[in-house]
Write a protein that binds this DNA or RNA. Structure first.
Length: 256
DNA sequence: CAAACGTGGCA
DNA sequence: TTGCCAAGTTT
């Protein structure tokens, strides 16, 4: 793959998203956690509000859980917000670990993204987009992580990572890829990847995931929880286990 | 390791 | 309107 052509293309098409204007590892971590499983454009207002309320890791570390969940609500996956706060606590107390995967909620992808964007570390951030780009180009049997690492131009990890992700998001899309606009078309296998079909078709409103979301929303808004019996109990047990709620002597749920 | 984890936007 | 899915991590 012609990495120079890729970087040149990225420079041309790059969208000015707010987290691309900073090198603050805390702000970058916030953006990465928010971006997990959420569309970039939807994250923008949340990111800006979050940083104005919790500008630094110590600010987030001491914030009440209610405030954290309040600012998070709408982004989904509430336990990620808690993990982010726990990461902020760690950073406040010990500074940034060399290996960011030591932080709660930070896996291989997020560690590489933050490390490259904040500190120019030569780490390839392999997300679902990068995985698809490389698989589609080079075949189902490629070791995607190893290949991304080989391609990464030393000292330019940040633009490389962003360019690869942007390519997957806007050109080498899951369905209907726009090969005519591809800056690195040469040598691509253009493998057709058949999308995996969902097996289950349970209504979302019938899932525990939905029930948990309703409990948190009700506690934030101080409205009645629209659940009862077994269903409610199962949600509460899960939420308590995840540290999203605590229960008083009567078993009534509250935010921690 | 498959499954759990939330939600709003868009086709 | 219904169904699909969007910069992953944890157990």
């Amino acid at each position: 793959m012609d990495v120079d052509a890729l970087l040149e293309w990225y420079e041309r098409v790059r969208r000015p998203l707010p987290w691309r204007e900073t090198r603050d590892p805390y702000a970058l971590l916030v953006s990465e956690v928010m971006l997990q499983q959420t569309q970039a454009l939807r994250v923008v207002p949340y990111y800006e509000r979050w940083l104005s309320e919790f500008p630094t890791a110590p600010d987030l570390a001491v914030a009440p859980v209610r405030d954290v969940l309040e600012l998070w609500s709408g982004l989904g996956y509430n336990r990620r917000a808690l993990a982010l706060q726990r990461a902020a606590v760690f950073v406040s107390e010990h500074g940034w670990p060399d290996d960011l995967t030591e932080l709660p909620g930070v896996g291989k992808y997020t560690a590489a993204a933050v490390s490259s964007f904040a500190w120019d570390r030569d780490m390839a951030a392999v997300d679902t987009n990068v995985r698809r780009v490389l698989t589609r180009r080079e075949g189902l049997d490629v070791d995607v992580s190893a290949r991304a690492d080989e391609l990464l131009p030393r000292g330019r990890a940040a633009p490389f990572n962003q360019a690869m992700m942007e390519l997957g998001a806007t050109v080498c899309r899951p369905r209907n890829p726009d090969c005519a606009q591809c800056p690195v078309e040469r040598g691509c296998l253009r493998l057709v990847v058949t999308p995996v079909r969902r097996v289950k078709s349970v209504r979302f409103e019938d899932t525990d995931r939905w029930a948990r979301g309703r409990v948190i929303a009700s506690l934030l808004q101080e409205t009645e929880i629209p659940l009862e019996g077994e269903r409610l109990e199962r949600a509460l047990v899960g939420l308590e286990r995840d540290g999203l709620i605590v229960r008083d002597a009567t078993g009534r749920p509250q935010l921690p």
